[in-house]
Design a protein around this nucleic acid. Structure first.
Lengths: 137, 137
DNA sequence: CTCGTGTTGAGAATGGTTATCATTAGCGTG
DNA sequence: CACGCTAATGATAACCATTCTCAACACGAG
């Protein structure tokens, strides 16, 4: 028996799904604590890395060095389009880029190529908000 | 007078150039220490972030959450092909990917798109080494 | 040479992540 | 249903990279 079902793991999975974008383990833990669950920080980390390992979640490093996680609907390999203002995330496919990455790696004698391709930008609502708040700076 | 010339900063710049790929601040500090220079860790960090800020170095987050730096010859926007074993790094251009990123972002209503495109793999020497050491596992 | 101030360096502080370990609780079994 | 094995939990300590603090120092102008 390698894996047991615990409400904690379930809660982490839920919380991750509820979040519209990437969230840090710390934030997730805080959120779960607010919901009266006395879940432990270590457990959140464990659940999170478990989800990431099993492909149910994606993880990336924020520029500040924090690990961010997000529930992933798409099973296979994919990339993200992330709003740098509100965190909204869109999963995108990039077959062309996949091919290009493999080709480029091979061209330089690299094997077992993996790649990181993420686009950061401003989603329409945030772009509008920012344009409106311009004078406030 | 905003900036003074110190041998420490020069050493950091040199060490960064000597490294063939991305190196962590810790590694760089250790290297400089080995060269009999009694340089301080804090100084290395300071010099490194300075170089990164002035565009003389590139920085990225390793999967382990460490910040890695590399001296960058190319001024403009570019990407990296990195050996995950020895750290060897090749700078690559990806005009097609640039275009694709912009297009994709626009398609989803995102503006001010920036992107992160890096390929991690095994360079030929490392791939061979690894194949030879297979039985050791 | 002398002074002012940016810089340095050792160590403390910070903050995220992982390990430790006693306790708890799934879950298959009898 | 009760029992027991063992994975999972959670409080806390340990870790590690990075940043901050601050007194001593050295660059460089006058």
């Amino acid at each position: 028996m390698a894996q047991r079902n615990t409400w904690q793991r379930e809660r982490v999975r839920e919380a991750l799904s509820d979040a519209r974008g990437f969230v840090s383990a710390q934030t997730l833990h805080a959120t779960l604590r607010d919901e009266n669950t006395g879940i432990g920080l270590a457990t959140v980390y464990r659940a999170l890395s478990g989800l990431a390992a099993s492909g149910d979640a994606d993880s990336l490093q924020s520029p500040e060095g924090e690990a961010l996680y997000r529930a992933c609907s798409t099973e296979g390999h994919h990339h993200h389009l992330i709003c740098r203002s509100c965190g909204l995330t869109v999963e995108i496919e990039a077959k062309d880029v996949e091919a290009w990455a493999q080709r480029t790696a091979a061209l330089h004698g690299f094997s077992e190529a993996e790649h990181v391709v993420d686009i950061f930008g401003l989603c329409t609502p945030c772009a509008k908000k920012r344009a409106g708040a311009e004078g406030a700076a």
